[in-house]
Simulated scan of single mutants.
Amino acid sequence: MSCRQVVAVVLVVLLAGVFSGTPARAKKREEPNYTLGYGDVIDVLVWKEADFTVEGLTVRLDGKITLPLVNDIRAEGQTTRQLKAHLEIVLRKYIESPVVTVLLKEARSQRFYILGEVMQTGEYSLTKELTVLQAFAIAGGFTEWAKKKDIFVLRRKETGEAVIPVNYLDIISGKDLKGNIVIRADDTIVVP
């Protein structure tokens, strides 16, 4: 086995051990609704109205989509349910009782980044709740020079950038499981 394969196997085993210890009585966490943003691809389906149904709409840089007769509609910052409700109101000008379905076809707007001493630095899609340990696995693990105690996450907040320290060794040893934070859109993980 190569060094990369050994690291990958060890990481999978450790992740399985960390996540298998969840108590059965733990509350099921509500998944937040996905908020549409630039680059997301959606389908707008209007029941029994083929002229208003459009598939493969991409949310533009200005945050809008274009529909026949309706023209530009803001999609950015809304969930698919919110956009559905808004479109049903707008379409009442043309259809008596519109029934709209908005489907997220491709989630492209929510991304996170990994830089530094990992096997595959770069930009990654954030399509589900993801922790830093899972992000390291996606990036192929660490290089041999990684300073696993000095990792940090840069997170944008309304008040400016926040630096969140992450000690990988404490997380995998069980000393600091809370340090296995959930990644948010636009987070940058830096592995020195």
Rank of each mutant, 00 (worst) to 15 (best):
60 R>I: 12
10 V>W: 04
160 G>L: 03
32 P>C: 08
34 Y>R: 08
60 R>F: 06
132 V>E: 01
126 L>N: 06
101 T>Y: 14
162 A>I: 06
69 L>N: 11
24 A>M: 11
68 P>F: 03
11 L>I: 13
126 L>M: 02
109 S>V: 07
81 R>E: 15
183 I>W: 02
52 F>M: 09
10 V>T: 10
73 I>V: 14
141 G>M: 06
75 A>F: 05
26 A>I: 07
145 W>G: 12
77 G>D: 02
189 I>T: 03
66 T>S: 12
81 R>K: 14
121 T>A: 13
94 Y>S: 05
63 G>M: 04
94 Y>C: 02
138 I>A: 02
38 Y>S: 14
161 E>A: 10
147 K>Y: 09
13 V>H: 07
104 L>P: 05
11 L>E: 14
10 V>N: 04
91 L>P: 02
164 I>G: 13
41 V>P: 05
110 Q>A: 10
70 V>Q: 08
34 Y>D: 04
67 L>S: 02
148 K>R: 14
88 E>A: 00
129 E>H: 08
35 T>L: 12
14 L>E: 03
166 V>Y: 06
56 G>H: 08
105 K>D: 12
41 V>T: 06
126 L>C: 03
149 K>S: 14
122 G>Y: 08
171 I>K: 10
143 T>M: 02
101 T>H: 14
187 D>Y: 05
87 L>T: 06
71 N>T: 10
94 Y>E: 08
120 Q>D: 11
164 I>V: 09
12 V>Q: 15
172 I>F: 05
144 E>D: 13
51 D>M: 10
38 Y>H: 14
30 E>W: 07
6 V>K: 11
124 Y>H: 05
133 L>Q: 03
137 A>M: 03
130 L>G: 00
32 P>Q: 13
19 F>R: 07
183 I>N: 00
181 I>D: 00
32 P>V: 11
44 V>A: 00
20 S>E: 14
